[in-house]
Amino acid sequence: MWNVFSRPAHRTRAGVAVAAVVMAAAGLAVTGVSSAGVVEGRGRDKALQSSLDALVSDGQIPGALMSIRSRDGRVTNYTAGVGDIRTKSPVPSDGYVRIASNTKMYTAVVIMQLVGEGKLALDDTVEKFLPGVVRGTGAGAGIDGRNITIEQLLQHTSGIDNYTLLSGGILPIKDRFFEPRELLDSALAQPPTFPPGTDRVWSYSNPGYVLLGLVAQKVTGRPFAEVVTDRIINRIGLTETYYPGPGERGIREPHPQGYLLLRDASDKLIDGKLIDITRFDPSIAGAAGQLIATPSDVNKFLVALQDGRLVKPALLAKMRKTVEAPGLPAGWRYGLGTIEFKLSCGITAYGHGGDADGFQSRAAITTDGRAVTIAATNDDKFLLDGVLALFDKALCAAK
């Protein structure tokens, strides 16, 4: 759930275990919800549309949507499949989806803005802002906030493992509200994956980003949802991006439904039936993955980040200084809240990805300004390859 990349996970009748990191008819659309001030392109790339149709052709992914922003700012939205398997309604063009761990880019931007304002430094320890908060217990006794820096949290080199609140799956807890402290306590009871920063060792950590949200709250004196809204969403006019409030379990309209497949402990499908998991409490993700947005608005964010409207070029360069990230696909490296993608066509793109129960998404921008965000309405890890192949193809396309 809300992970950048699906690692081994198990889904059972009791629910869906967290991934420790990531269709009856095809519908075509280029109009619909679009970001304010954006001229939407009318010329779909037939090859990309065909690939999107293929992604949903066997019915395991009910629907998919993609937004492409060309280097000159033209926006073209694509859809395929159905938005609801019960009603067979079409996928809404540029509809809202849970963007899951793409949220980490936004959280990282907030932190880097605070760095730019001199309110914190990358080598500051967590202890400086949250004294006594980060102390491991039991098997996690080796975790100590006095030895963990802000940079290590951003880069996933802190050694803090993931929490276990989803070990029974999402279904039993889908309507539960979680405070960040509860998420953190679960992680602090787990043994660290390695001492923080050891030889640049990397291990994906959602709790690390929950901690960054708490740091941002402490430094600014305001709730994280308000901080990310004021500093990013309102600042650059992301009218189709929002941080769900306490108790907000649904998704704003228009949106496709999100689905999951049940698997047993050996990853074998139990019955092959899709379960609608669109509605659940996203507080289990917090600053690590709670945002909801349309694909075109994610692209707007990527453009604003790259052109200097969110952080200064020197800070963006720090975000894009990467380390090896074992477990991610070949050619992917991790920076500070951003992934470097080496594409099949030889060019480089920067962005992130996310997998929340019901939705998987990938988003990136090339260095010359082509932005792509793709979302599929089933986050099953065995369906990831097709999404990644299309993501690469769309970023490499000429128009």
Rank of each mutant, 00 (worst) to 15 (best):
G250N: 02
T79N: 02
A25V: 03
P92Y: 07
P196M: 15
L291F: 06
V227K: 04
L269W: 10
I275C: 05
S203G: 04
D271H: 08
N234S: 13
A363P: 06
G331W: 00
A14C: 12
Q155H: 14
G159D: 10
G250H: 01
V210I: 07
K119Y: 01
K268A: 13
P295F: 10
G63R: 12
I170W: 08
Q290G: 05
L336E: 03
I236G: 13
F391W: 14
L130S: 12
P244E: 02
G331K: 13
D281E: 14
R181Q: 06
W202D: 12
R320Y: 00
A19L: 12
E40D: 09
S205N: 08
G32Q: 04
G245L: 14
G169Y: 04
G369I: 04
P244W: 01
K218W: 11
H156Q: 07
L269H: 08
I270K: 14
R146Y: 02
L336A: 03
P131L: 11
G116R: 10
V387Y: 09
A108N: 00
I150A: 09
P207V: 04
V38T: 15
Y163K: 03
S6I: 10
T125H: 01
N102F: 11
T366I: 08
P254W: 10
R71P: 03
L153N: 08
G168Y: 02
P207N: 13
T103R: 12
R362Q: 14
R231D: 00
P295L: 12
N299C: 07
G386P: 07
A287N: 07
I160C: 04
V323H: 07
Q60N: 12
V97P: 04
L171V: 08
T338S: 12
A317L: 04
R263L: 00
G221N: 03
L269V: 09
R333F: 00
D267N: 07
K268V: 06
M23D: 15
A216M: 02
D281T: 13
D380N: 13
P207M: 00
L260C: 05
R135T: 12
P196A: 15
I160D: 02
I99V: 15
S67K: 06
S70A: 15
A397V: 15
L291S: 09
D185L: 08
L260A: 03
Y163V: 06
D380S: 13
Y242C: 08
L122Q: 03
V215S: 06
D271P: 12
K321S: 13
W2F: 15
I99M: 08
G32T: 02
L384A: 13
T76H: 08
L165P: 02
P329V: 13
A371W: 02
T373K: 07
K104Q: 11
F129R: 03
V311P: 01
I292R: 14
L120R: 13
G116F: 11
Q190D: 04
A287D: 03
M112S: 09
Y204V: 12
R146W: 03
A394D: 06
D94F: 05
A325D: 01
A363F: 00
V134P: 01
V372C: 08
G337Q: 05
P326V: 05
N102G: 13
A293R: 09
D267H: 04
N206Q: 15
A17Y: 03
Q257W: 00
P313C: 00
D271N: 08
A314L: 02
L238A: 04
V30N: 14
Y96P: 02
T79C: 02
Y106A: 10
I150H: 05
R235N: 12
V30H: 14
D379L: 09
A25F: 00
